[in-house]
Design a protein around this nucleic acid. Structure first.
Length: 412
DNA sequence: TGTCCACTGGAAGGGAGGGCTT
DNA sequence: AAGCCCTCCCTTCCAGTGGACA
């Protein structure tokens, strides 16, 4: 058999110095045996959920805190602990503990939440077709068919409520009154502190019987977290002095985000491994910071549907041909409509384009600010938030947008 | 000070595509 | 097969608005 080019690649990678011991422990999704600087939160959550061990229903609770402050990790940590404990005493207790953890970024409609819960209790339902009420009552009756205590965790619950309202949440907070054998405990997790304002007061009072606020990590705390993970994930003495401090400092600039600091450390390690370096250096961390940023943007651009891509490309063309002058919604819509006719598709309405402009703003790809031009109306001032080169490189790769490359809109 | 522009953004609803029940 | 119900994506309608201008 002839030698494949990949054989050589793998051989040289194997021969290179080993950087990682256990790479996955450096992912933020990995739950270590200890969570440094979250002892207090673990203890509080443990205290609140402790009644499950004696078969009582704990209070519903709400966890608040910014991204990367350990809400999800602490919750999973405590739930895992409880599940282990329950296993130990299972012969002594006459009920089962079930948990369902869902991220409302994915499970973001009322129907999907209930369907997900059905799945968790072993009730198979189609992803569409049934009335939500029907799916909900199937969930209830399956859950109630045996003695069970179910802890339902709704991570990023604010997304669900903003998108689909709080009807499901309302039903779930009242479900215990309809159950004879089983009980449900709800845990809501949110990084939007203003989220409470959207909630019906009845849901709010029932859901936040207990609340835990997760403060951001300080740079010093991040260093401890990174040291712990580095010990698990990297070969000994592979990190140059200062690497961990730099990762912590960069992440601390953004509200003490442990997730980000771990990503930085892991990607820095991957870069060092690729370069076959003897150790991971501060330079690798800096490259990692740029590469993470670039990859996030490239990924966002690549996965955009066609119409938002065209809108973004219109903003790009406006900036390219009219210099740094800011565009307004009307300009963008005109160029967008023209591009649609060039590639022979029907343009969407200006109303819909307005929504897409807001979405692109939220993704951080453009900056759209409401302004008033006096008697010339109220509109949005729109600027690109990322370099033009990045738009060009990533969008013109799309065959349909590529056809527009070099096109100068007639409106100029 | 009132007018008026060019929108914004909420609300309601249409319809396509999918699937269930009877 | 008919009648429902779901989500998703979109349109239509329209009241509301900030501030330059007459």
């Amino acid at each position: 058999m002839t030698k494949q080019p990949l054989d050589g690649l793998f051989e040289s990678l194997m021969a290179a110095p080993q950087i990682f011991k256990e790479r996955d422990t450096l992912r933020h999704t990995y739950i270590p045996d200890e969570l440094p600087h979250r002892e207090e939160e673990i203890e509080r959550l443990g205290n609140i959920l402790f009644p499950v061990l004696s078969g009582s229903t704990p209070s519903n609770l709400f966890l608040y805190g910014k991204t990367g402050t350990g809400k999800t990790a602490v919750t999973k940590y405590v739930l895992n602990f409880l599940l282990d404990k329950i296993k130990e005493i299972s012969n002594k207790s006459d009920y089962a503990l079930a948990t369902s953890f869902m991220n409302c970024q994915m499970v973001n409609t009322n129907y999907r939440v209930v369907a997900y819960l059905c799945d968790a209790v072993g009730e198979k339902v189609p992803f569409t077709g049934l009335p939500t009420d029907e799916v909900y009552s199937r969930f209830k009756s399956t859950l109630d068919s045996e003695k069970k205590l179910m802890i339902i965790v709704l991570d990023e619950v604010d997304i669900l409520v903003k998108k689909s309202g709080d009807e499901t949440l309302y039903n779930l907070t009242r479900i215990n009154t309809d159950l004879d054998n089983s009980k449900v405990c709800l845990i809501g997790i949110s990084n939007d502190l203003k989220f409470k304002e959207y909630l019906d007061p009845r849901v709010l009072s029932s859901l936040s019987e207990e609340e835990i606020v997760f403060p951001p990590y300080t740079a010093i705390e991040l260093i401890d977290i990174l040291k712990q993970r580095a010990e698990l994930g990297f070969q000994p003495n592979i990190l140059e002095e200062g690497v961990i401090n730099l990762c912590a400092a960069l992440a601390a600039q953004e509200h003490g985000d442990a997730r980000k600091s771990l990503d930085l450390l892991r990607v820095a390690g991957e870069i060092a491994a690729r370069k076959k370096a003897e150790e991971v250096t501060e330079e690798h961390v800096r490259i990692a910071a740029i590469s993470i940023e670039r990859d996030t943007v490239a990924e966002a651009l690549r996965t955009l549907p066609l119409h938002p891509k065209l809108i973004l490309y219109s903003v790009y063309l406006l900036e390219k041909h009219r210099g740094s002058e800011n565009s307004i919604t009307g300009d963008v819509f005109n160029v967008y409509s023209e591009l649609c006719s060039v590639i022979n598709i029907d343009p969407l309405t200006q109303r819909r384009i307005g929504d897409f402009i807001n979405e692109l703003d939220m993704l951080g790809l453009i900056n759209a600010k409401n302004i008033s031009l006096g008697r010339y109306g109220r509109t949005k001032r729109i600027k690109l938030s990322i370099p033009k080169k990045q738009i060009q490189d990533n969008l013109e790769g799309d065959e349909r947008i590529g056809r527009l490359s070099g096109h100068v809109p007639e409106s100029f």
